[in-house]
Design a protein around this nucleic acid. Sequence first.
DNA 1: AGCAGCATCAGCCAAAAGGCTGAGGTCGGC
DNA 2: GCCGACCTCAGCCTTTTGGCTGATGCTGCT
Lengths: 208, 208
Amino acid sequence: MKTITVLLADDHLVVRSGLKALLGTQPGIEVVAEAASGEEALALVEQHGPAVVMMDLAMGAGMDGIEAIRQLRQRNSGQAILVFTTYDSDADIVRAVDAGAMGYLLKDASPEEIFAAVRGAVHGKSVMSAPVASRLFQQLRNPDAILTPREAELLSLLTEGLSNRELGQRLFISEATVKTHLAHIYAKLGVESRSAAIATAIRREGMR
Amino acid sequence: MKTITVLLADDHLVVRSGLKALLGTQPGIEVVAEAASGEEALALVEQHGPAVVMMDLAMGAGMDGIEAIRQLRQRNSGQAILVFTTYDSDADIVRAVDAGAMGYLLKDASPEEIFAAVRGAVHGKSVMSAPVASRLFQQLRNPDAILTPREAELLSLLTEGLSNRELGQRLFISEATVKTHLAHIYAKLGVESRSAAIATAIRREGMR
DNA sequence: AGCAGCATCAGCCAAAAGGCTGAGGTCGGC
DNA sequence: GCCGACCTCAGCCTTTTGGCTGATGCTGCT
């Protein structure tokens, strides 16, 4: 069996260190590089061409994990990308899968889950933590409430306290379009105001 | 020099694993136990009597880190307690120090910071990450930014997504008064909109 | 008594947000 | 080729928020 090469991307040193220690106990899996930011991850993937990339979504300043995933996919160099993050936000899950993630693990996953995910990923199998899977399942049952990728992106920025104008500038769309998306988001979340949307997004979606 | 015994309390396996790997490289420091919850931490401290406890604040269900720190202090078995967490929430810092924490490290701290904190802790030195220290400093310099009880109450309700009218009804005051309080809150938080206030309240003050 | 901080309210105006209708463009599936 | 989902935008109107100024009453401290 060929050794599976892995690249870790996480801004927390302890997390990289822990993941490396865990994966190091497994024969057939080898961590070949570590990145502390999205930019670094892109560069190191280029350099090492790992089979699997484990990526955090929130990585301090600069490029976030979603964007890094998207860019990796565009270059199409064949890595399987696993999201490895703390929160199981609906919106993040949608966006990550949309961007091209193969799996979605939470940081409190057991070693077995992690190993299985890495091994599965190289064979094209997508693995996700139980809470993540149950969220997706929940969503499939009432499809009307599923946010589109764009809406999820907006909601995510919304929880940072941006105004419509700022949202538009950030996403390169007009304020009118922002308002349209917001109206859809409110309807799907079952709220009638921006504030309530932020509140439920954070509580129900685990965003922050 | 005596070996420093350390107990790790964090609900994320990768974090414990990473911390253990990092500390393991240091002569004179030994991780003697790991706990995944506050309750477990209390039991294991009893059993192992470590010199230093490194404690996460958010530990899933059950007892949180603050409460665990408080109980450890009450038993007064002489451990130095270091907080090791992801967020530098003002409220958390104050509460942790109040509960009896010796230091406050963020998870993106460098290995050197971590080692120094552990070594310093046993000698009664309190070490905190730079962002944490600067936050405390900020607060001390700027007492004007402390919310009054009424303002804090409003802010708390604000994070539930209520409108001005609803806030007024809930607190039995007029909408005009609500607006006055909000204006003061915005000024103190350094924001210009309700959304941004909610966002910073949740992120910075740890409300949810 | 006087003063400072807090909580309460009013009125006025400008800016932002929200509700509504309609509409053009792309893309993938049937 | 048609249809549906999605993303994009415009205009119009109402409601909500926010900025400002000023005012009253209470309380605790000096």
